[in-house]
């Protein structure tokens, strides 16, 4: 019943909105986005075949190929799952985990110490400005062709935003919380662990999120160049050489879906948790 038809003669009234309807609307809008992507894709399929006479893999073809690959089809000697696991676990997770540990520790140190900040922050901003692929020569010189070079590139591109955001979070802790804690006689470690750390969490999570995206992007690019026979990036570049565009598109789709899942499931949940904790007004 709409609000205007409620019983307004009393100070309060019961009002329940159908939640499923709101959810359905949200889902419909998300589906519309998916529909748009597919429409644009088909548009490209027709445009490319009409203007250049070349075949452009269509969504249906790609979906078929994805299914075939998921059922155990091999792509350059390995299954799609093996390519994915190699990219995701052996390279990205390792580099990212290293970056999280180092970045958060350095960020905390830099956040509390002015002298450390003056030394480290210019470096962090500089590193952040270097495009991921520009690290390739350095990675190759340091570690040669192989896994370590890609892990290094993920580490170095994820590191700077984590440091910058963690340090920003610590500096952004409202001074009033610190004064209140000191007034009550809190020791420095207590102020750090019970006030500064929890209060800076939203900013830290934001840094982790940016670091994730940076690392994920550079991983694919790095695998294309520092290629070592296994991995989604490697598969894309091989598909490009052998003109198997369908396979390349499937790999790109897998990258998008995994990235989206991480963003919408892992980080969104994490962010909801910490911002709900911090809500002030």
């Amino acid at each position: 019943m709409p609000i205007r038809e409620q019983d307004l003669s009393k100070p309060e009234f019961e009002y329940r909105e159908s939640r499923s309807l709101a959810l359905a609307w949200g889902a419909a809008r998300n589906l519309l986005a998916l529909g748009l992507i597919i429409a644009v894709w088909y548009g490209l399929v027709f445009y490319v075949s009409w203007s250049r006479g070349t075949e452009f893999p269509s969504p249906v073809q790609c979906a078929g190929r994805l299914l075939a690959l998921l059922q155990g089809g091999k792509l350059y000697g390995y299954t799609l799952g093996q390519h994915f696991i190699s990219s995701f676990l052996r390279r990205w997770l390792l580099g990212y985990a290293l970056a999280v540990v180092c970045g958060v520790l350095v960020g905390l140190l830099v956040g509390v110490s002015r002298p450390c900040r003056d030394v480290v922050m210019p470096l962090a901003y500089m590193v952040q400005l270097i495009p991921g692929l520009a690290w390739i020569p350095i990675a190759l010189l340091l570690f040669g062709i192989g896994n370590t070079a890609t892990v290094f590139m993920i580490f170095v591109t994820a590191l700077a935003p984590i440091i910058i955001n963690t340090s920003g979070g610590i500096q952004g802790v409202p001074g009033i919380y610190l004064r209140a804690a000191r007034m009550m006689g809190a020791s420095w470690p207590r102020v750090f662990f019970q006030v500064m750390l929890p209060a800076s969490l939203p900013s830290v999570v934001n840094g982790l999120r940016i670091g994730f995206a940076n690392g994920w992007r550079v991983l694919i690019a790095a695998e294309m160049v520092v290629g070592i026979g296994l991995g989604l990036g490697y598969a894309i570049i091989q598909a490009r050489w052998s003109l198997d565009f369908e396979a390349a598109f499937v790999c790109i789709a897998v990258i998008c879906i995994v990235g989206l899942l991480f963003e919408k499931v892992v980080f969104a949940a994490l962010e909801r948790r910490v911002t709900r904790r911090m809500r002030d007004e």
Partner: peptide, 27 residues
């Protein structure tokens, strides 16, 4: 230096937002 001998009530809202009213007093 500060000490709980001299308790302060601040102008700004100074409760830790992630603690409940009871937890803030308990802290």
């Amino acid at each position: 230096g500060p000490s709980p001998d001299r308790g302060v009530v601040f102008q700004e809202f100074s409760l830790l937002p992630w603690k409940s009213a009871l937890e803030n007093v308990m802290w």
